[in-house]
Amino acid sequence: MAAAAAAGAGPEMVRGQVFDVGPRYTNLSYIGEGAYGMVCSAYDNVNKVRVAIKKISPFEHQTYCQRTLREIKILLRFRHENIIGINDIIRAPTIEQMKDVYIVQDLMETDLYKLLKTQHLSNDHICYFLYQILRGLKYIHSANVLHRDLKPSNLLLNTTCDLKICDFGLARVADPDHDHTGFLTEYVATRWYRAPEIMLNSKGYTKSIDIWSVGCILAEMLSNRPIFPGKHYLDQLNHILGILGSPSQEDLNCIINLKARNYLLSLPHKNKVPWNRLFPNADSKALDLLDKMLTFNPHKRIEVEQALAHPYLEQYYDPSDEPIAEAPFKFDMELDDLPKEKLKELIFEETARFQPGYRS
């Protein structure tokens, strides 16, 4: 834990890192770190609560700039109880001085990944967590956004079992017609939660990839272990087919990539493993919904509104309290091709509203 900075004593240090967030945020305490930044909790002297502050230093890398800009653009436009918001952003007053960006968010005690390492969940908890994931996802999908990296560590939890989806750095506007060349190379989302079509096709992607990830998360809540822990690309596919069985001819016809289709045709026939054999203690309604989410063919996979209306979630289902976005989200430009200098300018502009004396 960093010592509390005395008023006016300059930035606090946390594990050798400068955290320049005073005077409003003090009493910093280390939480963890990701690929390009550290997260601390801090005391907000204005709202009198502890908050989470993520320090991001992305400006050396085009990919990190892209992810940072995506996350900020999306989260500043989203407003939903099951999606983490941005409360404040701290950065230098000029673009030349801006080396880091500090993002202030609600402090959540833990995440689903940490929880599943230590606790076996009751059916009631599984049901409530799944409902909140789908409630947040309904809003995301209504904005025409794909999260693309749903996994237990991106689901934040607090002691009252509130759940918030975080990390929109890989999110995209849904565009089933656009052929994202190089899709697989830039697709760094965790393999275990990846839909089979991501490994088999490169053309376009749809909201059904997020539903697949939610199915993987439900299976993990039922058993405290990942359902498809593939060691590499082909191993991942083999794990999936080992449980779902061989795809039907109709399902194979959806695979545009001939090499991928021929690979699947070359494999020995596998039978589907019954879900109640894998999860003998699970609620039968939970397994019915799991089956509809972990469907090989993305066109037959359940959609988020149908999933919310499934009998497993009937005690929570309330369409009048499951809000959607006001308007579909649009990125003005494809960020993939922009140089990091341009992305830095866009991050600077996007964060201006939090600067003292800002006038829109």
Rank of each mutant, 00 (worst) to 15 (best):
H147N: 01
M221R: 02
E303G: 04
A2M: 02
P323Q: 14
N271P: 14
F168H: 10
E350N: 14
A195L: 05
P280A: 09
S246M: 13
T26Q: 08
I198K: 04
N257W: 02
C127K: 08
V46K: 14
A7D: 05
L76K: 12
K73T: 09
E334Q: 10
Q17Y: 13
Y317M: 11
G182T: 04
I243H: 08
I31Q: 14
W192D: 03
S41V: 13
E96D: 05
N45I: 01
M108H: 12
K340T: 15
D124M: 11
N238F: 03
C161I: 08
E334V: 01
L234K: 11
A42K: 12
S153F: 06
K259D: 06
S41H: 13
V273S: 11
S266I: 07
V214E: 00
N224Y: 00
F19R: 03
Y193G: 01
L338W: 15
R172V: 04
A307E: 07
W275M: 02
D162R: 13
K203N: 01
P152L: 03
P93C: 13
Y113F: 01
I211D: 01
G357F: 15
D162G: 10
V46I: 05
D251Y: 00
P152Q: 02
I217F: 00
A325K: 15
G85T: 13
D321T: 14
Y128P: 10
Q105E: 09
R301D: 04
E60K: 01
Y131N: 00
S122L: 08
Y187K: 04
L234V: 06
F228G: 08
A5S: 03
H125Y: 04
L241Q: 15
L290V: 11
F331T: 14
K114C: 06
P11T: 01
A4Y: 15
K207P: 03
E326P: 14
D179S: 12
K99L: 15
A3R: 03
E345G: 14
T181N: 07
L75T: 15
F19A: 04
L170F: 09
E350M: 14
Y312R: 02
P229E: 04
K73Q: 03
D318G: 11
V104L: 06
Q62E: 06
N238Y: 01
A92K: 15
N45K: 02
W212K: 03
P328Q: 10
A195F: 04
H180M: 07
N123Q: 08
V104A: 10
K292D: 09
F78L: 01
P11G: 07
Y36W: 12
E109L: 04
P339V: 09
E71I: 07
F296Q: 02
A307P: 03
L75N: 15
E60N: 14
M293V: 10
H178R: 02
F129E: 05
K259T: 06
R359E: 06
R50T: 14
V51Y: 13
D88L: 15
D235F: 03
P152K: 03
R359D: 07
L289G: 05
V273H: 13
D100K: 13
P274Q: 00
E33H: 12
D336P: 15
I347P: 04
P152G: 11
F228P: 09
K207N: 05
T63L: 08
R135E: 10
R67E: 02
K300V: 11
L184M: 00
L234S: 06
A143V: 04
P11Y: 13
T185C: 02
E96S: 13
T94Q: 11
G85M: 12
P152E: 01
G16E: 03
F279C: 09
P280I: 10
C127M: 06
C161N: 14
C65F: 02
G169L: 06
L252C: 09
M98K: 01
P226T: 01
H299S: 13
Q119R: 08
L137I: 12
F78N: 05
I209L: 02
F59W: 07
N262T: 12
A309P: 09
G32P: 05
K330R: 04
V18H: 13
R261I: 06
N257P: 11
L184H: 03
H178W: 08
E322G: 12
H80Q: 01
M221I: 00
G8E: 04
L308T: 13
P356H: 02
Q62V: 07
V145M: 02
N297A: 12
I302E: 04
I256Q: 05
D210C: 04
Y316T: 14
H269W: 07
N87A: 14
I347D: 02
A327K: 13
T63I: 07
M13L: 00
I198F: 00
D20Q: 12
H310W: 07
T206K: 03
C166A: 14
E341L: 14
R191C: 03
D175V: 01
G10C: 07
A52D: 00
A42V: 10
C216Q: 01
S360P: 01
K114S: 05
D111W: 09
E250H: 14
V145S: 12
N262K: 00
L155F: 05
L155H: 06
L252M: 01
I165D: 03
I347H: 08
K207T: 03
M333S: 11
L335M: 03
F331V: 03
Q119M: 11
T190Q: 03
T160Y: 11
P11S: 04
D100A: 05
N297I: 00
S153D: 14
G37N: 02
L163I: 14
C127N: 11
A5M: 09
L155I: 15
S360K: 04
E322S: 14
H310P: 04
R135P: 06
I126D: 02
M293Y: 05
L338T: 08
P356Y: 15
Y25F: 00
I198C: 04
L146N: 10
Y316P: 15
Y25H: 08
L234T: 07
L157F: 05
I240S: 05
L134M: 00
E250Y: 14
H178C: 04
T190N: 02
R353D: 08
A35P: 02
E220G: 02
T181I: 04
V104S: 08
I72L: 04
